[in-house]
């Protein structure tokens, strides 16, 4: 057993884990953060994407012990005081999800992308989410949603002031 101390969605946890425990399994099974999903076993699908110290990672490819001392944000931690993150809103408005299984990872990666590139063109969005597979949408509405969220998150837009800073900061 190894000890992991980690802050997940703003809450501090300390747990003993087997070193082999993947971060995604720790989140789901120990912390009950079942919003983060597992879609493959080769790091291709991105369904398990979370933010680790502000950067998107595939939580199936990080050991829980590697997250010791880190801050983790999951899909369950990006809405603020009941208000959805602009990317969440945009996914609903643009019908960017169907079965919803890729959605948590897709949203977390989209937030990271917008942190790096606040105004991406279509190709930049497509490349920015290339590590997240979706089988339902053909990606078109996901691309629309990310671009729409980018507009909402621009400085001066009404939504922007309500955006949690740590999340809007995304990949930085």
């Amino acid at each position: 057993m190894a000890q992991v101390r980690v802050t997940v969605d703003g809450v501090n946890y300390a747990d003993d884990v087997e070193p082999r425990t993947l971060l995604v399994h720790y989140l789901r099974e120990r912390l009950g953060k079942t919003g983060t999903l597992v879609g493959c076993d080769t790091s291709n699908c991105g369904a398990c994407t979370v933010h680790l110290n502000g950067q998107s990672v595939k939580s199936c490819s990080v050991l829980a012990v590697q997250a010791d001392g880190a801050e983790v944000t999951t899909i369950e931690g990006i809405a603020c005081d009941g208000k959805l993150h602009p990317v969440q809103e945009a996914f609903n408005e643009k019908h960017a999800l169907q079965c919803g299984y890729c959605t948590p990872g897709m949203i977390m990666q989209a937030i990271d992308l917008l942190g790096d590139n606040p105004d991406p063109d279509e190709q930049e969005v497509r490349e920015g989410i290339e590590g997240n597979l979706c089988r339902c949408t053909g990606y078109q509405n996901i691309v629309r949603a990310v671009q729409s969220a980018a507009q909402k998150m621009k400085p001066g837009s009404p939504a922007q002031t309500d955006t949690p800073v740590s999340v809007a900061g995304g990949g930085n």
Partner: peptide, 21 residues
């Protein structure tokens, strides 16, 4: 209409089978 079912899916409040313990 935007979808009713999205609310749980975009926030991680989902119950996929693997979440049943």
């Amino acid at each position: 209409r935007t979808r009713k079912e999205d609310a749980r899916l975009i926030t991680g409040r989902t119950k996929f089978t693997d979440a049943i313990n």
